[in-house]
Design a protein around this nucleic acid. Structure first.
Lengths: 166, 166
DNA sequence: AGGAAGCTTGTTATAGTATCACGCACTCAC
DNA sequence: GTGAGTGCGTGATACTATAACAAGCTTCCT
């Protein structure tokens, strides 16, 4: 059994700042390797994404991008998000119209998410055997897979325990 | 190995009308079993969804819902789609903001789609072992699964063969 | 038949998500 | 320095979805 949890549900006791710093450092490295620029704008958007540790909406980012009073326009944030997505630095959660930071931009992997509908927390998985199975099913139909997304809705442990306590 | 293909990519030689009729008949049965009403409005939306045999956008449906010259308003079609979705008669493709008819509304199953980004065709799968694997992964994190969606982008056989012929 | 309750639909307005198109500024190679 | 490529600002607009309230229809009870 491969280790499949890329990012577990975040608990309140983790070191937020160092976790964001690490993400930004990884991003810098990824961009350098790709020969692309992590501009201040892109960097700021990525930081905002990580600061929430939850799926973030584009327009929420926009509000927080209040550069010196002036309100940024939508293309600003969408361009940054698109850049980050292509670099594998953020994922888009299709069922939420929201974005979340990817903790492992260095390795190519398919997107597999557990989304708690109670608290909004998200865990990211990367079970290669799942991917392999999907590929095999697709191949049987002559279908060539480019990329796949798995989004699972449910309730995380913390929320279930909180519910049980009532 | 369970049979996992619920709906293969539709070829041009299938009998479209009878396939729509069958879908409507199944819908009628499902609604009866659920004690709900397949009103003319809902029925018409479902028929339009099936008539395309591809993912359909809500506003496209809206245009085609030209009831005697009068143009329907968005809530009309969204309400019908929501009803159909809850009854398991249509699926929503999150990555496309589009809807597609479900050929097996009678059996509960998770949504697994192969989406051809070239021609837009979609195949629906139901590989129970995939679902089981996801459930197992989730359980290991204490996560209780409600429902899951798998959307796979790629190229279908027909499009690949067409490309190869060039 | 009368009438209450609940479901279904119509309608207007608005919220939320995303892209287009144009122009300017910056960078970097030559 | 100049031309190509890239990044960003800005205004407009397209696309997707829901809120809120009113009106009509069904069902079921009496």
């Amino acid at each position: 059994m491969t280790r499949s949890v890329i990012q577990d549900f975040v608990t309140s006791d983790h070191d937020h700042d160092s976790c964001i710093d690490a993400a930004l450092a990884r991003a810098q490295a990824v961009c350098r390797a790709r020969g692309e620029r992590l501009t201040p704008q892109r960097r700021q958007v990525l930081e905002l994404v990580w600061r929430s540790h939850r799926p973030v909406k584009a327009y929420d980012l926009l509000e927080r991008l209040s550069t010196s009073g002036r309100r940024a326009a939508p293309p600003t944030v969408y361009r940054a998000l698109e850049f980050l997505r292509e670099a594998g630095l953020v994922h888009r959660l299709e069922s939420l119209n929201a974005f979340i930071g990817c903790p492992r931009p260095d390795i190519r992997h398919s997107a597999q998410f557990l989304i708690c509908t109670r608290c909004g927390a998200v865990a990211e998985m990367d079970d290669a055997s799942l991917t392999a199975k999907i590929d095999a099913n697709a191949r049987r139909l002559g279908f060539k897979v480019d990329d796949e997304k798995i989004e699972v809705n449910g309730t995380c442990r913390a929320c279930r325990e909180r519910d049980a306590a009532l």
